[in-house]
Structures are given as structure tokens and as C-alpha cells.
Amino acid sequence: MPETLNLDDFMEDARGRLVPKSIVPEIDRERDALVRETVDAARELQQKMTKFKMRAMGDVHAFVELSAEKYKARLGGNKGNITMVSFDGRLKVQISIAEHITFDERLKAAKTLIDECLTSWTDNGRDEIKMIVMDAFDVDKDGCLNVRQILGLRRFEIEDETWQRAMEAISDSIQVMGSKSYLRVYERTAADGRWEPVPLDLAAL
């Protein structure tokens, strides 16, 4: 009967092969141990940060509910963006809701109508708008459209009937695919009174 392997005596390499620890250089074993220890600590910290975020957001929403009850107001659905500032005005907690927006096929109709406008406009005074419109429909390196720039086209007060139909098509094409809540904390600096974020991103520390 073949002897059972003791996996503690082996290390798995990048190709999935079991290599006896006895032939793995000591520096490689020490590096492996350091990497695993650091990643384990990072995972533990990630779990703590997730619990902190959920607790903090829960506390803020609970306070908003309590505040509303004092005015006999009932809150329902998405509570939206919330900002709370400490009594001394030096600390701030902010919850913001960011929606993930995309466009359906009606955006192509909007682009066609806009192209008609660009072709028909000969007034030099609209050259700047032409450039903004063309930039709005440029895609990034991942092939994605810039949602903010496209939605920003609707701010132009242009009476052209074709343009108006194009803006209507943009509005109708908007699809909200979901939303994400962000928790941010700030501290006001004593020097110039600006709000500085308290970094919770390891790369920002």
C-alpha cells in the first residue's frame, strides 16, 4: 500500500506542482510566508472596514429616522445623500448614492439627430458646441461612453427642433442599472478651513 503524502512537507508552485519543502530555497520559503501573512492581515482589515462601513451607515440612517420622527415625517425608499456635521463644525460624515447609468438603443437615434444638427449648423457661433458634442460621444480606452458628458448636452438651451428631439431621445434612453452607497468622513483643516477627507484607502495613506 503506497505511503500517504504529508502535504505539510510540500509547497505548491505557480504551475500547481507539489514541490518538497526540503528543496525549496529558504529565501523563497520566507518570502512565501511573508506574502501570506500580509495578505491574511489585509483580509482581516478588509472585514473590519466592511463592518465599520455597515455600522456607520446604519447609525447615520437610524439618526435620520429619529430626526424625522420628531417632525412626524415618515421616510420611505432610498434615503438619498446625507451630510452630518459635528457641533463644532470641524468633522463631517457624508453618505452619497451614486447611480450606475447606461443608455439603451434610443441613444443611437439621439446621435443621428445630433449629427443632422451638426451638418445643418453653419453659424460660427456654434463651433464650440460642435466640439463639445463630438467629444461627448467619444469612447474611452475600454469602449465606454462618458455618461456625464452626454447628459451634460441637455443643459444647452438650443431651440432647434431637431436638437430638442435629440435631447428627448437621450432622456428616454437613460437606464439606471443600480446604485452604490459611499461613506466618506472629513475633517476641517485649521489653516484654511477646507474639508480634508480622512483616507480609508491604503494607497492614500
Rank of each mutant, 00 (worst) to 15 (best):
C117P: 00
M84E: 03
R154L: 09
E187K: 07
L66D: 11
N81S: 10
E161L: 09
V64P: 03
D59S: 13
D8P: 03
Q47F: 13
A41I: 14
M84L: 13
D127M: 10
K21H: 02
S22Q: 08
E196K: 09
F87V: 10
V39W: 10
K92S: 06
M49K: 12
K108T: 02
K51E: 13
V60H: 06
S173Y: 05
A14L: 10
V39M: 15
Q149P: 01
L107F: 06
V176Y: 05
R154W: 04
Q164V: 04
L183Q: 01
M54I: 15
D40Y: 13
L107N: 02
R106V: 00
L45D: 11
Y182P: 01
M84I: 14
G80Y: 08
L153I: 07
M134I: 08
R184K: 09
G152N: 10
P25V: 14
V198Y: 03
R154V: 02
E26D: 14
T38Q: 12
M167A: 03
T50G: 12
I150P: 00
L145D: 01
V198G: 02
K141W: 13
Y186G: 01
K51A: 15
E37Q: 12
L18W: 01
D127G: 14
Y182M: 01
T122D: 12
G125Q: 14
N124Y: 08
R148P: 00
K130W: 02
E128L: 04
A14M: 07
L205Y: 11
L145N: 07
V198Q: 08
A110Q: 02
V139F: 04
L5F: 05
D127R: 12
R29L: 15
R74H: 09
M11Y: 11
M57Q: 13
K48L: 15
I114N: 00
F52Y: 15
E44V: 11
A110C: 07
A41R: 15
M1S: 05
V139E: 09
G178V: 06
M167F: 03
R74G: 09
D13T: 03
S179I: 06
